[in-house]
Computed example of a mutant assay.
Amino acid sequence: MSKVYLSAKLPEIATEKLIDAGFEVAVYNGNDLISHATLLENVADSDFLITPLSTKVDREIIDAAPNLKLIANFGAGFNNIDTDYAKEQGIVVTNTPKVSTNAVAEVTIGLILALSHRIVEGDKKMRREGFPGWAPLYFLGHEIAGKTLGIVGLGNIGSDVARKANALGMHVQYYKRTPLSDPEERSMKVTYAPLDTLIATSDFITINAPQTDENYHQFSTEAFEAMKSTAAIINVGRGPIIDEKALLNALTKDKIAGAALDVYENEPDVNDGFKLLKNVILTPHIGNATVEARDAMAKIVADNVILVDQGNSAKFIVNP
Rank of each mutant, 00 (worst) to 15 (best):
S220K: 08
L180K: 13
T206M: 02
L140F: 14
E214D: 15
S159W: 05
G169N: 04
N235C: 10
N208T: 15
E225H: 04
N156L: 11
T178E: 13
E222C: 02
Q218K: 10
T221M: 02
R163D: 07
M227L: 04
I233N: 05
S159G: 11
F219T: 09
R238M: 06
Y138N: 11
T148I: 03
H217F: 06
A226R: 15
N215R: 15
T221S: 03
V152N: 03
V161A: 09
R186E: 15
T206A: 11
A232T: 07
D243H: 13
E225M: 06
L137M: 01
S202T: 00
S187C: 09
S159Y: 00
A162C: 05
A209D: 10
R177P: 10
D243L: 07
K228Q: 04
G141M: 07
S202K: 07
V161I: 13
G133A: 11
G158Y: 03
R186H: 12
A226I: 01
S159E: 12
K164N: 09
I242F: 04
H142M: 14
L251T: 03
A209H: 05
A193V: 05
K228R: 15
Y138F: 13
S229E: 10
G150Q: 10
T191S: 13
T197F: 01
I234V: 15
A231F: 02
D160N: 14
I207V: 15
L180H: 09
G239Q: 14
T178R: 11
Q173R: 11
I157E: 02
H142G: 00
K147Q: 08
N208D: 10
T201Q: 08
F204R: 05
M170S: 07
H142V: 10
V152T: 09
L180R: 15
R163A: 12
D160G: 04
A250I: 12
N235P: 12
T252C: 09
L168G: 12
L180A: 02
T148A: 09
H171A: 07
E185P: 10
I241N: 00
D203I: 01
A145P: 07
Q211W: 01
I199Q: 00
P136W: 12
V172H: 11
K147R: 14
E184S: 14
D254T: 14
T197C: 00
V161M: 12
N208E: 10
